[in-house]
């Protein structure tokens, strides 16, 4: 994928993260009632809407973070082969996604 498209995705995931994390904060910590009780968490965990919500939050967060890390590595060590950086971060991203997605999926 071209650098421009990767950058566009970085901006989109940045805006998405703002919305997702904002919603998560409001629902889990700022809304009235007891959103952090075991019952309310179990209720959200069994909802397909919240499963999709947290999987998307994970994808957006992972992409945004790993792309940012890629930029830092590329700028810090410009001579490092691009393939090494991309494959390392891509593999790490898939592994983290698999592990992190397992939690809400298993709780569903």
């Amino acid at each position: 994928m071209s650098e421009t498209r990767l950058k566009i995705l970085q901006y989109i995931t940045g805006i998405g993260l703002f919305l997702f994390v904002g919603t998560h904060l409001v629902i889990s910590h700022l809304s009235s009632g007891e959103p952090t009780t075991w019952e309310s968490i179990a209720e959200r965990a069994s909802s397909s809407f919240w499963l999709a919500f947290y999987i998307l939050l994970l994808i957006f967060g992972l992409y945004h973070g790993l792309h940012g890390l890629r930029t830092i590595i590329t700028e810090s060590i410009p001579t490092l082969p691009a393939k090494v950086v991309d494959w390392t971060l891509g593999t790490a991203g898939i592994a983290i996604f698999g592990y992190a997605a397992y939690i809400p999926i298993s709780a569903f």
Partner: peptide, 9 residues
């Protein structure tokens, strides 16, 4: 300009 060392740096 779309290279790794291009415009987005």
């Amino acid at each position: 300009a779309d290279s790794r060392h291009g415009v987005w740096l």
